[in-house]
Structure formats: C-alpha cells, structure tokens
C-alpha cells in the first residue's frame, strides 16, 4: 500500500473559514424552517391579539389596542373554558401520573414476557390522538359501545346513556381517553428513571432492615422526584394546549361544558374565523402557562435551598 504523502496545496485561511462555518451550514435548514414557520408566526400571532383580524372581512386588519382583552374580560364563555381547562388538565395529569407510576413500578420487576407486555401496554401511545378520541367516543356510545351498559350495571349510571351528552359528566369522557392515551408516556419516562437507580442501594437498605414501603419512600421516590417534577411540568403545559380529544369527542359541548381554552381558541379561529380574538385568547393562555412554569421553577428552587 502506498503511503506517499501528496503535498497538498495548503490553504489554511480558506480551510479555517470553511471549518468554522460547517456547524452553521448543517443547522441552517432546520433553523430557517423553525424561525419561518414557528417564530415569525408567533410574533405575528402576538401582534394579531392587538388587531382586528377577520378572515372573511376585507376591511378588518386595523390596530385596535386592548379591545380584544376588554372583550375577553366580559366573555363568560372564556372564563368557563378557563375553569374547564383547570379541571381537564388537573384530572388528566394526576390520573396519568398515578397510573403511569404504578405501571412503571410493575414493569421494573423482571418477569417472563416483560418485553411483550411492555410493547402491548405502550401501544395506546402510538394510536393517533384523533383516533383515540373517536374510539373512546364510540365506546361511550350506548348504541355500539359497552361502557354505558357496564356503568349502568355497576350502578354508576341511572340509565345506559352517553355520558358525552350529559353536561354533568361529559368532561369525564375526554379525560378517560386522555388517561388511556397518556399513561404510556409517564410509564416510559418513569421506567427509564427507575432503571437508573443503582440496585445496590436497595440491597443496602434491606440489609439495614428497611421494608418495601420504607425502601419506596426513602430510595425510589427521592430518586424519581426530579423526573416526576419535570415530566409533570411539561405534561401540564402540553395537556392544557391539547385540544384534539375534545374537538373530536365533544367539540366543546354539551352547552360548552367541555370547552377548554385551547379548543375555544380553535373554535374562534376555525369556526368564527376571528383570528384577532383567537390570538388574544392564545396570548392569555401563553402568559398563564409561563407564569405557571415560572412558579413551579421558583418553588423547586426554594425547596432545593431549604433542603
């Protein structure tokens, strides 16, 4: 094999510039797209909140200051949506987390067929959200779904009716679908964190005489705490913005009982074509979520400082 050194004409300066620009060239296409399709629309969206933008009205477009926000202050539907969002997000996140944690703990124990079980219980995560919504809407439909009959048999329902059309109960429908759909996300994240806990810690603890409950409280929970905190934070923000299931299952009804802010924005933009007002609501939601995230981060910080 020839190893003769060809004397390359060295162009250090040109080469250095080429080297320095390499990472920028690689990331440029992704960045341009993100800026063009996400950042610019975000800025535009914020500006729309202060303008009169109606798609079918050619005379709209003018600057109207805080009018949208004043209207929002009077909008009973918005405040109902805000309360519904709290309910929807709180119940969904709480149930997803509890059932996800239990599933992760169950799967952390080795048993025959664990790989298959894991694939099966994580499957809902792969189901498209709109299909999950439709699927659960059908399950709640007394004509073809078994759930109303079962609930009636258990005495939870007076008659085998569709809870999605019952103003008192309708919200439970999308929540059930959301829990079914979201458990795998929590389980996968928590399982990964569980498996990162050094096994010898448990052995040391049982030598020290700690029972299963003590081991869980003194080892598992503290180790999982950071993952739990960040996952719940991200999931809360995400679920507050997640309108698919509600749009598919109830479209906000009956009587706006399941209308959350995200689906309300969608209704304003898509059905009324009032983009200005939709953007104003979205801006309020964004600010509320930012405040929430900030509070959580601050709370964590103070807890860390104390501990």
């Amino acid at each position: 094999m020839t190893l003769a050194a060809h004397s390359h004409a060295a162009k250090p300066l040109r080469k250095r510039i080429a080297d320095a620009s390499e990472p920028y060239l690689y990331s440029a296409p992704a960045l341009i797209l993100i800026i063009g399709v996400m950042l610019v629309p975000l800025v535009l969206g914020i500006s729309y909140a202060f303008r009169d933008i109606q798609l079918l009205n050619p005379f709209s477009g003018g600057f109207i200051g805080l009018d949208h926000f004043r209207a929002l202050g009077q909008d009973q539907a918005f405040f109902r949506a805000l309360r519904n969002t709290l309910w929807w997000t709180g119940a969904s996140v709480f149930l997803q987390f509890i059932f996800g944690l239990i599933l992760a703990l169950l799967l952390d124990k080795p048993f025959a067929g664990r790989g298959l079980v894991q694939a099966l219980v994580f499957l809902p995560w792969a189901v498209p959200s709109f299909l999950a919504g439709l699927n659960w809407a059908w399950l709640f439909n007394p004509v073809i779904g078994p759930l109303p009959h079962w609930l009636h048999a258990l005495g939870l329902l007076d008659a085998p009716n569709n809870i999605l059309s019952d103003p008192q109960l309708a919200m439970w429908g999308p929540i059930a679908a959301n829990v079914w759909w979201g458990i795998p996300f929590f389980a996968i994240t928590l399982l990964a964190a569980l498996q990162a806990i050094p096994r010898d810690l448990y052995e040391a603890a049982s030598i020290d005489g700690a029972g299963p409950v003590q081991r869980f409280l003194s080892i598992t929970l503290p180790f999982l705490a950071p993952t739990i905190a960040i996952t719940i934070l991200l999931r809360t923000v995400w679920i507050s913005n997640f309108a698919d299931l509600i749009v598919v299952m109830t479209n906000g009804g009956p009587a706006d009982r399941t209308q959350i802010v995200a689906s309300y924005i969608f209704t304003q933009a898509f059905k009324r074509l009032d983009f200005g007002y939709a953007s104003a609501i979205a801006l309020v939601l964004l600010v509320l979520l930012l405040v929430y995230s900030l509070l959580i981060v601050l709370l964590r910080q103070t807890m860390l400082n104390k501990g």
């Binding site: 996400m38 975000l42 969206g45 729309y48 924005i265 933009a269 983009f275």
Partner: peptide
C-alpha cells in the same frame, strides 16, 4: 408554546 396560537398566523 401553544401551537393553537400559530394556527391563524
């Protein structure tokens, strides 16, 4: 950030 906010723009 909420993707619904980007729908209109």
């Amino acid at each position: 950030f909420p993707l619904v906010m980007l729908v209109a723009p």
